[in-house]
C-alpha cells in the first residue's frame, strides 16, 4: 500500500479516467469522459438528473462495464487497488427493512479483508463499533436498521465506509434527505478525511453549498463539461453549459465568488 501511495504522490493523481464511455441499451450515458483527481481533495460531481454522475462512480468502481476507456486508481486498475477504495452507495439503493442491526451493517465494510467464508469475530465487532462512534452512532449499534431515521441510516453507511480504512472514498448523494444536523456531521467527517490526506468524491445536488463544502468540482452532463478547483471551474458560464441555460435560479453570489 505504501508503494502505491509513493507512486501516487509522484504522479499526483489518485483517480485517473481516460475516454470513459458508457452506454445502456446503446444509449450513451457517459461520452468520452476524462478525469484527473489529485490526492487529498474533496471533490463534488454535479450535473442535472440523468447526467451520469452515479454511473461515473460505478464505472470507476467496476460495477458498470464501460464501452470504452479505462480507469486507474493510483496508476493501477481498480481490481488491484480495491483495498484503497471505500464506497457509500445511495441510501435508497437498499431495503432498510432487512432483518439486521446497525453494527452488522457497519461490519460489512470488513468483509473484503476477512475474505471468503470466514465470519466476523470480536476484532471486527470492535472495529465496527469504533466506526459507529466516529459518526456519533455508537449508542445505536443494536438498533434494527428500519428503526433509524434517514440521517442515522446515512451515518451507518458512512461508518461502514470508514471501517474500510480506504485512501479514496466515493459517496453517492450522502446529503440526500438528511436533516441539517446530519449534514453538518457529514461535512465535518469529510473535512477530517481530507485532513488525513484522503481523497473524497461526492455526488452532490445542492449547487449553493459547493463552494463552501468542496475544493474541487467536476461538472458533468453525459460529457465532462469542466473539472478542477472550485475557484476556477465553478463559474456561471460552466454551470450554464452543464444545466443548459436553466441556472437563472442560482443566487448570483454562488457564481460571483468565483473566477
Amino acid at each position: 500500500m505504501s508503494d502505491n501511495l509513493e507512486a501516487a504522490s509522484r504522479q499526483g493523481a489518485a483517480i485517473e479516467a481516460t475516454d470513459v464511455t458508457v452506454a445502456y441499451h446503446e444509449q450513451p450515458v457517459l461520452w468520452d469522459v476524462d478525469l484527473d483527481v489529485p490526492q487529498g481533495v474533496l471533490m463534488a460531481i454535479v450535473g442535472p438528473n440523468g447526467a451520469g454522475k452515479s454511473t461515473l462512480i460505478k464505472t470507476i468502481l467496476g460495477l458498470v462495464q464501460p464501452a470504452a476507456g479505462q480507469v486507474r486508481i493510483y496508476g493501477k486498475p481498480y481490481a488491484q487497488q480495491r483495498s484503497l477504495v471505500g464506497y457509500v452507495p445511495q441510501r435508497g439503493s437498499v431495503d432498510w427493512d432487512f432483518p439486521t442491526n446497525a453494527l452488522d451493517v457497519v461490519t460489512m465494510g470488513l468483509y473484503r479483508k476477512l475474505g471468503w467464508i470466514k465470519r466476523p469475530g470480536k476484532a471486527e465487532h470492535s472495529l465496527a463499533l469504533e466506526g459507529l462512534a466516529k459518526v456519533g452512532m455508537a449508542e445505536f449499534a443494536d438498533r434494527q436498521i428500519s428503526q433509524l431515521s434517514g440521517g442515522q441510516q446515512q451515518r451507518v453507511f458512512l461508518a461502514r465506509a470508514l471501517v474500510q480504512d480506504a485512501q479514496i472514498y466515493f459517496m453517492d448523494e450522502p446529503f440526500a434527505g438528511v436533516d441539517a444536523l446530519t449534514e453538518r456531521a457529514i461535512i465535518t467527517l469529510l473535512r477530517d478525511l481530507r485532513a488525513a490526506g484522503k481523497t473524497v468524491v461526492v455526488v452532490h445536488h445542492d449547487l449553493q453549498t459547493v463552494p463552501e463544502y468542496f475544493d474541487w468540482v467536476t461538472l458533468l452532463n453525459v460529457r465532462r463539461i469542466a473539472s478542477g478547483p472550485v475557484a476556477e471551474v465553478f463559474t456561471e458560464d460552466n454551470l450554464r453549459r452543464t444545466y443548459g441555460g436553466r441556472v437563472a435560479f442560482l443566487a448570483p453570489s454562488v457564481a460571483a465568488g468565483n473566477g
Binding site: R82, Y87, P89, S93, T100, M108, Y111, I117, R119
Partner: peptide
C-alpha cells in the same frame, strides 16, 4: 452455511458487495 456472510451481503447490498470485489 459456508457462504453465509457472502449471501447476507448479496441480499442486503449487492452494489457494495461488487465494490468489495465479490
Amino acid at each position: 452455511a459456508l457462504l453465509w456472510k457472502e449471501f447476507k451481503l448479496l441480499s442486503f447490498d449487492p452494489e457494495f458487495a461488487g465494490s468489495l470485489g465479490f
